[in-house]
Write a protein that binds this DNA or RNA. Structure first.
Lengths: 236, 236
DNA sequence: CAGTGGTCTAGACCACGGT
DNA sequence: CCGTGGTCTAGACCACTGT
């Protein structure tokens, strides 16, 4: 269940946990400074680099702010951070013990809508490959995707047969990328998407929009609409 | 823009970037092993711990799997990881330059619905404090929340005046917690929520559900329904 | 068993940024 | 200026795990 079944950590993790505990216990008040690394190293009887390792972790959790010369201060508004895993759709489906299926719904190559070009930072009317596809779990619609790909940034793109390989899988295996932006939101199912996902028109769809670049050249913009009821779970 | 305006990293970050680049360039193929730390240290002319620092970062990105004795292997299905910041609502709103407002809509103390008890791992009919509240941005409804809190785990809870302080803010300042689960989904606005958020009934609402525990004792379950159009943005 | 990553140390130099 | 965190080093021992 929610039990910790793990042994008490040792080494730098023990220091991290102790620091976290002292912060949570208001031992060091919010906004206040905590002892500097050298002092803590002496307290814990270890090398400064060990303390550094621990405090770096605490800072990554958002519990403290660290600045040179100013030292480490307890964050006033401790933002929690959650890490989302964004697996390939196929892995996501099979990991739940379901069979995975894929179907290409449409494929077009031509000038893209203004909004899409703007989103990618391309001039109006740039020719993009436009794909719509459906991902299935146990034969049921699981996610519908709407994707534009920039042929200028993806050599060989127009020769790929996307009827059998999903664009996601192909791009991951064939295109490196340096940066990406991810947007999570909720949208209502319009008529075509309701039909594709076999759900009521107007249903609330969990939606992920991703844009990726390689060296400031846009690769792809994709909007993925998950079937109603889809949940993304993560630990805090 | 999307430009990198940053100088080329040095030290362990340079090694990390180089390793990532070589993986993306299929220099080391997916599923294959990459040189062990000592070898890379010699290649890069640095200490092994510097390589270790770099590879730990690459592993955290999900690009490689590391195991003792087996060495480091390029992940076959490189799951992207995105980190979500979960700030206090107030911080989230003011960070966008909007004024923040809060209103308590209802407060009840009594046996909780079965589904809520089950979600928290409590026996059926456990008495919980139930709050519904509205968070405003520039006077407009921004997020409606529906929260149950376990008085057994939160000393002094029933004496708190939640008409002026949001439960979120109070809990963050007064209750540590050890674990939490976060669920992201999309839900349709029912009648009361549509009224609270001043939106159409049936609108798609981005929804976050959080459950937090302290030492395996449930603290709170909260469902937060964001006004239509809300987007959560993060970098990949 | 033996190879590999995980961690720790004691010391050093440097970059940043309050004062 | 000078205190603090950021990083690096060379070496060491240990934990895990494939063979």
């Amino acid at each position: 269940m929610h039990s910790d079944t793990g042994k008490p950590p040792t080494g730098w993790q023990a220091i991290r946990d102790d620091v976290v505990a002292r912060i949570r216990a208001r031992d060091w008040p919010p906004g206040g400074a905590i002892p500097h690394e050298a002092a803590l190293a002496q307290d814990y009887g270890c090398a400064r680099s060990t303390v550094n390792r621990a405090l770096r972790d605490v800072a990554a959790m958002g519990l403290i702010d660290r600045r040179r010369k100013a030292g480490s201060r307890v964050a006033l508004a401790p933002a929690r951070r959650a890490t989302l895993d964004i697996p390939l759709i196929e892995a996501e489906v099979t990991a739940r013990g379901q069979s995975y299926g894929y179907a290409l719904l449409s494929r077009d190559h031509g000038p893209a809508p203004l909004a899409v070009c703007a989103r990618l930072g391309l001039p109006q009317g740039a020719p993009l490959l436009h794909l719509t596809a459906l991902h299935l779990a146990d034969g049921q619609p699981h996610m519908a995707e709407d994707r534009w790909i920039n042929p200028e940034a993806v050599p060989g793109l127009l020769d790929v047969d996307f009827t059998t390989v999903s664009a996601n899988a192909w791009l991951v295996r064939n295109m490196p990328y340096s940066e990406g932006e991810l947007i999570l939101t909720a949208t209502q199912a319009d008529a075509p998407r309701a039909e594709a996902l076999d759900c009521a028109e107007g249903a609330a769809l969990f939606t992920m929009e991703r844009v990726t670049w390689i060296d400031d050249r846009p690769i792809t913009l994709v909007r993925q609409f998950y079937a109603p009821g889809h949940r993304v779970v993560t630990q805090l």
